[in-house]
Design a protein around this nucleic acid. Structure first.
Lengths: 248, 248
DNA sequence: CGCCGAATTGACACGGTTCAATTGAGGTGG
DNA sequence: CCACCTCAATTGAACCGTGTCAATTCGGCG
């Protein structure tokens, strides 16, 4: 996971790196597949924070996140909001067609995205593009695994456990995209956003975060987060399930 | 949805009725497809309440529920339990392969199940069995839609709303399988079970249920549940989302 | 009749929410 | 370079929805 050919100084290669890393974690890409991703990245597009990137449903185009954070969410008629999951750099969404049309993909920060239609199309040819085919075939299962974890988190974990579990998940995912280092990793979510994901009030979330800091488990500053005591955080996180190695 | 050819007095036809109804709601079945289902039902099998019906993962066999209630759940190391969803008569699970291996399918009551491998196999031939192919293709999306609703329920609904929403969902699903009537519909879940689905304690769930009864919204007795004031229950249920017509 | 799991109660503690300010940090215009 | 603006983070205090514990009652069944 360390020495990787995608750290090139060529700008569009650097942009593609998170996506390529994530894909490699599922299956090794051949040359043609790498090029398909890089070609898509060339047409990247910037969107402001708050922008609606997509409304889910059978007609959405698949997208990959190159930088910035987004989320999938639902707004209730009375203004309450529930976030289903975060989309981090390297994530690809919309590879398959959900039926739910009330889910919206929203940019949490400024984001850079690219169209992944080419990727989905290429996956049709399982012989020429076996890894992409595999990724697309696995997409619903991976997504569901994350949703199930989230259900357990919401249904049976305390606020303290929920936050720890989420931070752990983010750390793992960012690492998988090659984004973190010894100084921690980019953490671009607002406390209000976290609250809406974890089913808590902002005020309480704030207090729980402070507790985690006070106890020396994590450190948050300037859009970066660092897990200071990985062991203890992981223990809290896994009281809720154990991430199956490599399954995400 | 009323006059239906599956109410035959032939016992194995009666058994297949809920499954056939549910399938018909997605796409009209041709003769060959009906026979595939009926053939599977002939080999039905009884299991006691509490029995583990399957452990999810890439190797599970698909199953259809003919009668009784089951659920998909996860147990945490410390004994806490989270139920993801109920499996009611007419439901078919395992039509696709999730990656999550910590989810278990458990019988909540005595159940009668049948192997649905034949159904899944038949779905491969989209020309001969278009409706089955459609059902199998849609399976992950339908499942996800329900999980998303559940996440909203757990994250942003009060206990009162959660219970009302769940009862509404059960009513709709049972009706779709042709099971309810003017006396209500079979409701086979224990209060402890409901609590584990809704992320509540048994005691609190009990009190909320009582409140719903006291206010004349529902009536529960002897394994049957009846919605007395569908309008008000639906209003509570949809404060959490609106079930997209026909989407479940 | 007696047993057992499920449902129900009461009392009490606590986690988490709400409301209403206050503080802090980044960004902009003068 | 500073005043100002805005949004995010933080704080305090009061309130109440839910959880916990420990009985007690109910309902079906052998």
């Amino acid at each position: 996971v360390s020495q990787f050919p995608f750290e090139s100084s060529v700008p569009w290669r650097r942009k593609a790196a998170p996506v390529l890393r994530r894909l490699e974690a599922v299956a090794a890409l051949n040359q043609a597949e790498v090029e398909i991703v890089e070609r898509a990245v060339l047409q990247s597009e910037q969107r402001r924070g708050g922008a609606t990137l997509a409304v889910e449903g059978p007609f959405g185009r698949p997208r990959m996140i190159l930088s910035g954070w987004a989320c999938r969410q639902r707004l209730l008629p009375d203004g309450r909001r529930q976030i289903f999951d975060f989309l981090l750099p390297g994530d690809v969404t919309g590879l398959w067609s959900p039926l739910d049309t009330q889910t919206t993909v929203v940019a949490l920060t400024g984001v850079e995205i690219a169209d992944a239609s080419g990727m989905r199309a290429a996956a049709q040819d399982g012989v020429a593009h076996p890894a992409l085919a595999h990724v697309v075939a696995l997409a619903p299962a991976l997504e569901q695994a994350r949703l199930l974890d989230h259900i357990v988190r919401l249904g049976r974990a305390s606020a303290y456990e929920r936050v720890a579990d989420l931070l752990w998940e983010c750390a793992e995912r960012q690492a998988a995209a090659g984004l973190g280092d010894e100084r921690g990793f980019p953490f671009l979510a607002t406390q209000e956003t976290l609250a809406d994901l974890l089913g808590l009030s902002v005020v309480h979330l704030n207090r729980v975060l402070q507790q985690l800091r006070r106890e020396g488990l994590v450190e948050v500053k300037a859009g970066r987060l660092k897990l200071l005591d990985r062991t203890r955080v992981a223990a809290l996180a896994t009281s809720v399930p154990l991430p199956v190695a490599g399954a995400r």
